[in-house]
């Protein structure tokens, strides 16, 4: 939904890192640490992406769904809102909001296909019920702006059209963090271009300078992305499983 980001609710709802990195008391009680919290959100981002591949929706729907999920957990606990239900529900809701509706039935079919684990088993009525709760958690703000939008123009302008694929991938990965809740989407797009330039050994300093944007912010986001990749290597299945284990079994 294209309109002016600066007048949007998305912009008004941008948060500080400190606000995003709050583990809900109920979750703390279960021993979930900030690291676990981030791991679970990462894990669920991947889950959403895999489901999306199966039900065949655009990347934009995935991005919106992940944003909903991350936004919801700035306000709700994982204890009360089981991520294994929240993730597919966010995809379901995002598919409607992005005009690529996926039937709940289809989603449930692929949930079962992807996970034999009982903890992931949810039925249509669970998704529909959670949908209402997510809508409420989001306060019905459903419009999300994404960094993809200006990407091809920016790349072309920077003379980096050959790096489209790489930058697109970097943006996809940016949703494994909470960046979309914290920074305006164009800063994330520019940060990804910045990282792509580094990886491609292309000096774009002059180009960035003439943009007249807040380069501090761009560099900060770029650093976070690079840190994430460094850190990502240390993430193992065991760690993820341990974090997931702390979530209660279904009530």
């Amino acid at each position: 939904m294209a309109t002016d980001f600066w007048t949007s609710t998305h912009y008004k709802q941008l948060l500080d890192q400190e606000e995003v990195d709050v583990v809900h008391q109920l979750d703390k009680d279960r021993g979930i640490t900030l690291e676990d919290f981030k791991l679970i959100k990462l894990h669920m981002t991947n889950y959403i992406a895999r489901l999306a591949q199966n039900v065949k929706v655009r990347q934009r729907v995935v991005a919106t769904a992940v944003t909903y999920m991350r936004r919801a957990y700035t306000r709700r606990s994982m204890t009360e809102y089981d991520p294994r239900l929240v993730a597919p529900t966010c995809l379901y809701l995002a598919s409607k909001a992005e005009e690529s509706t996926v039937q709940a039935r289809l989603l449930v079919f692929y949930i079962k296909k992807l996970h034999s684990d009982d903890k992931y088993r949810y039925e249509i009525k669970d998704i529909l019920e959670m949908e209402m709760k997510i809508l409420e958690a989001l306060n019905y703000y459903l419009v999300v702006f994404h960094p993809y939008r200006a990407l091809s123009q920016l790349l072309q302008d920077a003379g980096m059209s050959d790096a489209t694929q790489m930058t697109w991938g970097l943006i996809n990965d940016s949703y494994k963090m909470d960046l979309i809740l914290i920074y305006p989407p164009h800063s994330i797009a520019l940060a990804c271009i910045y990282v792509a330039s580094m990886l491609k050994d292309k000096d774009n300093t002059a180009w960035f300078e003439q943009l007249r944007v807040d380069m501090n912010m761009v560099e900060k986001v770029a650093t976070e992305i690079l840190d994430f990749y460094d850190n990502h290597k240390t993430i193992t299945d065991e760690k993820v499983n341990a974090a997931m284990q702390k979530l209660s079994t279904r009530t």
Partner: peptide, 12 residues
């Protein structure tokens, strides 16, 4: 199909 898409559109 849960919350009606028409309502979602209108709210959005």
């Amino acid at each position: 199909e849960g919350f009606p898409i028409t309502a979602i559109r209108e709210i959005k």
